[in-house]
Each structure stands twice: as structure tokens, then as C-alpha cells.
Design a binder for these strands. Sequence first.
DNA 1: TATGAATGAGTCTTCATTCAT
DNA 2: TATGAATGAAGACTCATTCAT
Lengths: 223, 223, 223, 223
Amino acid sequence: MTRLKDLREEEPKKPAARWRRRKEARPSEILEAAMDVFAEKGLTGARMEDIAARAGVTKGTIYLYFANKAAVFQALVTEAIGERVKQAGAMVDAYEGPTPELMANVLRFIGAVLVTTNRAALPKLVIGEIAQFPELQEFYRRAVIDRGLAVWEKILKRGIARGEFRPVPTGHVARICIAPLLVAALWRTLFAQFDTEPYDIDGLIETHVDVLLRGLAADGASA
Amino acid sequence: MTRLKDLREEEPKKPAARWRRRKEARPSEILEAAMDVFAEKGLTGARMEDIAARAGVTKGTIYLYFANKAAVFQALVTEAIGERVKQAGAMVDAYEGPTPELMANVLRFIGAVLVTTNRAALPKLVIGEIAQFPELQEFYRRAVIDRGLAVWEKILKRGIARGEFRPVPTGHVARICIAPLLVAALWRTLFAQFDTEPYDIDGLIETHVDVLLRGLAADGASA
Amino acid sequence: MTRLKDLREEEPKKPAARWRRRKEARPSEILEAAMDVFAEKGLTGARMEDIAARAGVTKGTIYLYFANKAAVFQALVTEAIGERVKQAGAMVDAYEGPTPELMANVLRFIGAVLVTTNRAALPKLVIGEIAQFPELQEFYRRAVIDRGLAVWEKILKRGIARGEFRPVPTGHVARICIAPLLVAALWRTLFAQFDTEPYDIDGLIETHVDVLLRGLAADGASA
Amino acid sequence: MTRLKDLREEEPKKPAARWRRRKEARPSEILEAAMDVFAEKGLTGARMEDIAARAGVTKGTIYLYFANKAAVFQALVTEAIGERVKQAGAMVDAYEGPTPELMANVLRFIGAVLVTTNRAALPKLVIGEIAQFPELQEFYRRAVIDRGLAVWEKILKRGIARGEFRPVPTGHVARICIAPLLVAALWRTLFAQFDTEPYDIDGLIETHVDVLLRGLAADGASA
DNA sequence: TATGAATGAGTCTTCATTCAT
DNA sequence: TATGAATGAAGACTCATTCAT
């Protein structure tokens, strides 16, 4: 509580009343800012004040919308990934062409996201600091990892069923499909700054598509 | 700003007297303890006191051997990985059999390390927190990543030169070779606790060997 | 430093219009709510938002009627006690029966207030937190304590003058008269929750009346 | 963790190495300081930094000995009161003279403590802020209040048994015995500053002894 | 009048690092 | 060499108060 003696101190501040009512927009503005700051500094390294400043508000405002830093992170992950994975599953169900083509398309799409958006930083964040947030850890495992792998298994089983792929353990191969994407995301996040010319992520994806499809191809099939 | 060369400046000057075994052993005891604690709590989450306690010494003692927490981490990485990569390069040079076999052996060896040692936690550590230590970041890039990739490229070029592999962009493929190993390490570190039965890393490696070698095989070669 | 006279400067100027009942009622509604919340959480622990919520308004509204939290507290004390003490003095002046009876009646009346109203929490509040509000502290001393003691001294002097009480130092005895009431109020506020059956405050009062009147009785008088 | 960039900042501070090893003495030094600061500002108003400064250490040091502010308070109360009450009980058991004399002695002894030590501030502290520390509340009720009342009841029953006091409800009278002492402590803590000449606590005690013993005296007994 | 989004000063608490012993 | 008491900078979070609407 303000001590009485302070009541008259009325400093001559009030520089500019840049005061806005933004109840609707605030949460996503904050999450956007948080994504940037987390990407730069990591979960622990990011100060709430940094996030607030980047969002154009002050510390206290964040607490109007999120209970604490972990809650900001969880909302971020939920919004940024959980939703996408669900969509991806639907897309695969709707696809009608040959499976190798489908697989190549999905890989190229994810590759493009990694190259062009700041979402590429999420793997680093999740890998690095999720262990400190047990609830988030389980949530992430279920909502993102398991569901994402399920989509890949679905693709693989489709290819095997249609005689395009030889029989393989789909659980393992699903991870092998994703692995180079993870490497690409981490590369961009952690080591790209030391490359004189930017690492060619598209080239990595294309090579992955090439080697993987040839590795999976059924004997009679043409990669 | 502290340069890397300063980080271990306090390293024991190895005073002639060897009659006390502990002095010699201290640094690696501390690193061993640090590996455990870092694996559990992450770089930021690990308290110097935790490391000291696990090593059976007190906080102050660590500072006799390492300038600060970052120096402990750097020494750990240097010892745990840097050295291995150098050895691996030499092993590849000395190998005389067919390249697919060499590649399978290397993958299986790394896989075994991931399954059996606490070194599996290092990728998580490095990925999560290296960004906060710029010097360490560059060191790691040069000493571990670049050198590790070089070894893989050497293997790939050997296979191409011997007609066992078709021509592929070795830089990209090197990353593809490693990627599933990274996934395995992260899985064990981050998500294994939610599996009712442990994830079959050996199976992943074997599948990777199978798909990769078939994907790389020269047209006339047998995978 | 804010003077006391400023504390309610924002008090509604009672604009002629009376067609809106709420405006008139607001301040006392807020004080009623504040009494409850203060009783539960103490001055510092009570959040303006809690008070507002209990009063069915929002934070900002409170500041229309009271300059700050201290002003709310002061208004509360003024209304809840100051006024009563004045009335009590008048009652004593008007009384015509024997003094022991008067004294017993007053003690029983205060006892009943302590048992039945939430005013019993005021001593705890005042004792615990008044020190942080120097102006309030002096106000309370003058308006409540001194005037309350004066009433008791008046009673005692009346009894001595009428030969009902033996001569005693009335200043000290006035405090002795009140003391068990204070104990009762504090008991109910702080420790009652640990009693399996509620503490018998009426019994305390009756015992106090008994012991006190016998202790004060003039030699020839009948207690 | 200190960022690497900070490592060389080595400001030219280090004004004076007034560094002492005081493991033994620290806790009681801190409690002594805490008593003073709590007495002045209350539990909530007291900043850990204030306490540390008064004890001649820094904030962090307090946390070497106490888990948090509540723990400091609890230790203070335990040490300051709990122990005394136990001793008082033993003293009463050992007493052999007439009960009125015993009672007068105990009242005078407590009165002297209230007049001469800063322990007089404890009632204010406990009353004001104990409600925020439920564990402490129950502890205090059991260890101080109940045990203290038990001592007084023991005295009263002794007097009744010996025919010195008339039969009275000892539970109520025990509270009546203590009540003026509480008033004295609170007076000294809260309102004494407004008296031009200090309130005569000894006079209050003597008057209390006089009125109380006369009020309790058995018919044939001489007060 | 009333609202409630926004502010930001204030405080507890943690922990890497220092240094007298 | 080793200890561990002490330091103090740093950051999460709270909440009284303000003020555009």
C-alpha cells in the first residue's frame, strides 16, 4: 500500500498518454512478442519486461492475461503448433495423388515454414527448457509429438498399402522423416550466424526427399 | 569480455607433487558431477552448489579449477565430444572394408553411446542453452559440428569414390545421417518418461541404416 | 504529506439530484464491504479489488468516494466507533439509577456488540496496522481512546461521589474496565476458530462485572 | 547465471572487507534486529533489507539461516515467549507463600518486562498479523495462549483451594487477570508517543492488583 | 458516475561469485 | 587446497493508483 507520506509526491511525469484499450488484441500481441524474445534469449533468459517492452506494454499488463511466464510459453506453443498439426492431419486425409508426391509436398511445406517464419525457433525452446515445466512437457508430448508422428505414420501406411513403399516399421520411419527438418530448424536457430553464406535448407529438404523416397521405394516402384 | 582462453586459466598448474591423488582427479570428478546435474536441470537450472555436492566438494572448490559455470560446461563438452570426434575421424581413415558396412558400424556405435551413457543429454543441453554463451557457441560449431560433419562427408565421399554410393550432395546427406541420432538422443532425454515401454532406439538405428543405405546405393550396388 | 482533512476531499458534493438512490448509498456500501474485507485480511492484506468486488462495484469507483485505502479505513473507524462513543457519553449523563447497575449495563451492551457484529474485528485492525498511518493513529487516540476512557472515568467518579465505589485512581481503573472487552474482541477475531465450542464471551463479561464491582465496592456498599 | 559479458566488469568497489564469520551468533543477531524492525513497522511493513541492515549483514545472509520472513517471525515468537511461559509454570509450582502474594508478584514481574523490554511490541505484532500465517496462529494459540492461561488457572485454583479466593470460574478470571497487562503493552506500543508524560504502567498494575485481589477475596479473607 | 485496462514502483527470493580463514 | 559465510545483482510477481472511455 502506498504510504501516506507519498501521496503528495505527484511527480511531474505524465510524458504522453499513450494509453489504449486493447483487451481483444493484447494476448496475441503479447504472444507475438514473446515468440521473438524467447527465440532470442530462451525461456529462462527472457525477462517479462523484455516481452512487455517488445509488445509495447508494461510488465503488469502481461499478468492481466497470463498467470506467469510458463503460461505465456504454453499458450505460445499451443497456438503455434498444436493447431497446425491438427490441420496437417486433415490435409493428408484429403489428398488423392501418389504417396511419394504427398510426402514430398509435406516435407517441402514444413521446410518453407522453417525457412520463412520465426517458428523455427520453437524446437530449440521446447528442447531446451521444457524439462522445467512438467505439465507442459506432457502436453507437448501428447498434443504435438504424438499427433505429429501419427500423421507421418498415416502417410507411410498409405504408401505401403498402395504398393508405393516397401513394408517398413512406420514408427521408426516417421521419426526418420522428421529428423532432418529438426536439424534444419536447429541449424537456423543456433549456428546459421557463423555461415558466410546461409545454409541451403531447401537443398537439404530436396536431398532428404530424394534419399528417403528411394530408400522407401517398393522394388517395382519408380522413385 | 572474457575470452575463451581465459575460461580455464585457474586450471591447476600441476605442481610436481603427486602424492595426493585427489588433486589430480578433482577436475574430472567435477565434470562427471556436472554432467549429471546439467542433464537433470539444464545449464541455468543447475546450481553450482548442486554440482559441488554431487562431486563431494564445496562450491568454492569448483572455482579453483574452473573460472565459472560456463567454463565448466565448456570443459565438459570439450572432453565429452570434441575428443571423440577426433578419434572417429582417425578410425574412418583406418577402415578398409566396404563403406556401407563402415557407415552402419559408426551409426550403431553412436547409437550404443546414446542408449547407455548420460552423454545422451548433451544435445539437449547444447541446443537449449548454448545461445547464451556466444563464445561457446562458436567453439561448439567449429570443434564439434563442423568436425563431425566432416567425418561423415569423408565417409560419404569414400563410398561415392568406390562406386558404392550414387553421387549425392555430401554436405546435406551428412546431416541426414546424423539427424535420427539426434532425434533418438532428444527422445531419451525429454520424452522417454512418458512411454510405458522404452522406445526402441536400436530399432530406429537399424531402420535408419536400412533406409539410408538403400537410398544412397549406387544403381548396380547391393544395399 | 496528505493531511487528514484531505483524505475524503473527493467525497460526493451531494449534487441536488436525488433521483438515483445508489449515489447516496455508495459510500456506506463501500465501508460495509471494507469492514468485512479488512476483518478477514487486515489493512495491508486487503486489496482494493476485493473491497470493490464485495461492494459490487469496480476498483475505480472507490476512488470516487475515498482518496485512498487509508481514507477508507479512517472513514470506517470514524463511523463505526467515534459516533458510538459520543452517544455513550450522553447515555451516561442521562442515567439515574445506581452506578454499579449502570456499569454492568454498559459492559453488557458492549459485550453484546462484540458477540453479534463484525465490529469485533476493529481492535485487531487498529492494533495491527494503525502504526503505519501516523495521522490516523493520533486521530484514533483522540477520538476513540481518550473519549472512551473519559466516559468510563465519568462513570467511576459518579460511583465514588455517590459513595458506591471506594476511592480509586479512575484513569487506571477505566482501562481495567475495558481490558477484558478487548480480550474478548481479540479472542473472537484471532483464536475462536481453534475452539471446539465457542468461547463464552457472555460468561466472561458476567465474571468481569462480578469481580470488578466487588473489587470497587465501598466498604459499606453491597456489590 | 552471470552472463559472460559481465565477467570482466569488475567494478572498482570493494570499499572495506568487513567480513566476519559468525555462524554461531548470526541467528540471534538477526532475531534481535527483526524484533526491533517488526516492532516499528509490523510484519508486512518490515523489509528483509531493513532487518539485514539493522543486523549488520545483507539480505542474502538472512536466507542462510531462515527460510523466509515468516520463519524469522516464528523463531522470534518461539524464542521470546514460548520459553518464558514454560518457566513461569515451573515458578508457580515451586511457590510456597500465600496466593494473593504470588499473584501480585507475577503481575508485577510481567509488568516490569512490559515496561523495560522491547518484547512489549509482540502483542501488537501477533494481534495484527498472525492471521496471515495460519500455522503460526495455531502454534501461538497452543504454545503461548493456552499454556499461559493454564498457568493463571493454576494460580487461581490454588487460591480457591486454600480458601484465599472465593470460588470463581477460573477460565474467565484468568483472562481478566491478563487483560490489563495486554492493555499496558498495547498502550506502550501504540499510543504512548502522544502522552506528554509517560503513562504510569506500574500504577496500572498496582491498581489492577488491588481491585482484582479485593474482587476475588474469600469473604473471611483479608485482601 | 462508473468502468477496468494499464501502469510501475516495490519487495521477496535466488544463486553465481568472492574471499577470509 | 579447501571451505562456506557473505555478498548483491537480478528478476518474477503484486497491487495501489490513474485515467481514457
